[in-house]
């Protein structure tokens, strides 16, 4: 399977994503530049973490207008999978690929830690290799991760099973103290209604090998492979 990783000016997790795909998963990785006009035939697009355009105006607000985003939106419209990680999640929201927005952490502090998230649904092409309710250890590193949407949108996300990951405590329960950024309903990751665009604040690509503290992120990418039987 061919994974394209887009580098925006200010991306910093693009190499991590590329290594997870190539070294760990043994899949083909394609490095794409934000000024490209062609996705070069990739099956999956990864919008990586970082601080594209210095987070000017709002995180992700400017990156959304990069030339390649037109191709990414077209890819998503065709049903092609897109994974937005951290800054990529912010970009996907700004681009209208996902509902809601990511605001300044409620604590006003940048959080960099290994958090716990619970797999809320395995019925997505990004989570089918996890067990229902599985607790994952994934790193987070962000200043603007507070997922926010209006109540109607949040209700719809819950009813449609679009909430994929939620922050939980050591017992696996949702708890305001386990929500590192004040996200509404503890939401750490969602898919769009069609189920082909995932956005999440935690970094699965930085949890791809036990030696770095966790390999819990690998199954996210394996889920995409399982989908097509690679």
């Amino acid at each position: 399977m061919k994974f394209g990783v887009i580098t925006f000016p200010g991306s910093n997790s693009d190499e991590d994503a590329f290594l997870a795909i190539t070294d760990v998963l043994g899949q083909e990785g394609v490095k794409l530049w934000h000024k490209d006009h062609d996705l070069r035939g990739v099956d999956v697009v990864i919008l990586p973490g970082g601080f594209s355009y210095g987070d000017y105006l709002r995180a992700g607000a400017i990156a959304r207008f990069s030339p390649i985003m037109r191709e990414v939106v077209a890819h998503a419209d065709r049903g092609g999978p897109v994974v937005g990680i951290c800054n990529g999640f912010q970009i996907a929201c700004e681009a209208g690929l996902l509902p809601g927005a990511l605001l300044r952490n409620a604590s006003l502090q940048f959080v960099s830690e290994l958090c716990r998230v619970r797999v809320e649904t395995t019925e997505t092409r990004f989570s089918n290799q996890y067990a229902p309710g599985q607790i994952l250890r994934l790193p987070i590193a962000h200043g603007d991760g507070r997922y926010t949407a209006d109540d109607a949108t949040l209700d719809r996300l819950e009813q449609n099973g679009q909430v994929v990951f939620r922050y939980v405590n050591a017992k696996g329960e949702t708890d305001p103290s386990a929500d590192p950024n004040g996200s509404m309903r503890g939401i750490a990751g969602i898919v769009n209604e069609r189920g082909n665009v995932l956005g999440l604040m935690p970094h699965p690509e930085r949890a791809a090998e036990a030696i770095v503290g966790s390999a819990d992120g690998v199954a996210l990418f394996e889920s995409l492979l399982a989908q097509v039987g690679v």
Binding site: L57, R58, A61, P99, G100, A101, T148, D150
Partner: peptide, 8 residues
């Protein structure tokens, strides 16, 4: 279109 986020 850009300067304000209509969601927030």
């Amino acid at each position: 279109k850009l300067l304000a986020n209509p969601v927030t």
